[in-house]
Simulated assay, not measured.
Amino acid sequence: MRCLQKGLVIWLTGLSGSGKTTISNIVKDLIKKDGIRVEILDGDWFRQNIDPEAGFTKEERKKHLIRVANVAKLLARNGIVTICSFVSPYEDIRNEIKNIIREEAKFFLIYTKCEIEECIKRDPKGLYKKALKGEIKNFTGIDDPYEEPKEYDLLLDTVRNSVEYNVEKLYSFIKEKINEIEKA
């Protein structure tokens, strides 16, 4: 496995159940097959292993996501393709994340678009069911807003397009960015 001269951060944002983790894991395997170092920072894993006290208010999310951004920046500046899969629901915090990472690495925001109704139908972790019953507070899309990105580098519509299509779209995008880095 080789590291790039300079890594990059691919930041997937979208509602819970929009497909961020599914797409990220498949793309990670494809990049690994290309012999390139790649890591995934996923919301569930990061909260469980790195930031277990992280809460869900806007201020707590901000602190949490700033930690994630700094870890992603560290990985990327060491030549690792870093895929981050986080709801990251607020536009101002996403902009702050972008600024932190761009100090030392390339940053690309990927919007995994999926309507709330579809996310509720999918509900892979049963979280929407709990949030709708009032068992979970500050749940994005139910009693806390998700601010759709005003600007993004790539849109993955996970309602209108298949997982395979979105994987290929993201993988091709990342390969293009890797090629640009290697030619620089």
Rank of each mutant, 00 (worst) to 15 (best):
N49C: 12
I10Q: 02
T82K: 07
K130A: 05
D42Y: 11
K63V: 12
L65R: 04
I181V: 15
Y128C: 00
R94Y: 04
R122M: 03
E53L: 13
F108I: 03
V38T: 14
T13A: 01
I36N: 11
I142S: 02
S162Q: 03
T13F: 04
A131S: 08
K130N: 08
E53V: 12
D92V: 02
K62V: 00
E103W: 00
K150V: 13
N99Y: 04
K133T: 08
L74N: 14
I178F: 10
E182G: 01
D29I: 10
K175D: 04
S162R: 08
V163M: 00
L65N: 01
K6Q: 14
V81Q: 06
K175V: 15
K28L: 13
P124S: 03
K177P: 10
D143W: 09
C119V: 13
K121Q: 12
S18G: 04
D144E: 12
R77P: 03
F46W: 14
L155R: 09
D29Q: 15
R122F: 14
N138C: 07
P52Q: 11
K20I: 08
L75I: 09
C3S: 13
N166D: 13
L8M: 15
E176I: 01
E60A: 11
I110W: 02
F86E: 01
I100M: 06
F108W: 04
I181L: 15
N166A: 07
E60Y: 05
V71C: 12
P145T: 06
E182S: 05
D157F: 11
D42G: 07
R94G: 03
I174H: 02
V68T: 06
R160T: 11
R77Q: 14
G134V: 08
Q5C: 01
K177H: 14
T158F: 01
F86C: 07
A72H: 03
V167Y: 09
T13I: 07
Y165K: 10
N49H: 15
I142P: 05
C84G: 09
L127N: 10
M1K: 11
E148S: 10
E104P: 06
L155M: 10
N25F: 12
V68G: 00
I110R: 05
A72I: 09
T21F: 00
E115M: 09
G79R: 06
R67L: 09
L127I: 05
A69N: 04
V71T: 12
L156V: 04
S24T: 08
L41E: 08
L41I: 15
R47P: 05
K177Y: 11
R77L: 14
I83H: 10
K73H: 06
G17H: 03
S88C: 10
G19W: 06
A72Y: 10
E39G: 02
R102I: 09
V159S: 06
E164Y: 10
T112L: 14
H64L: 15
K58I: 13
I142M: 01
E151N: 14
V167H: 02
I174K: 02
P149L: 03
I101C: 06
K177V: 12
R102M: 14
N138Y: 14
R47F: 11
P124H: 11
E60D: 12
R37C: 15
C3P: 00
I80L: 09
G17V: 07
N99A: 12
S162Y: 13
L127S: 07
F46N: 08
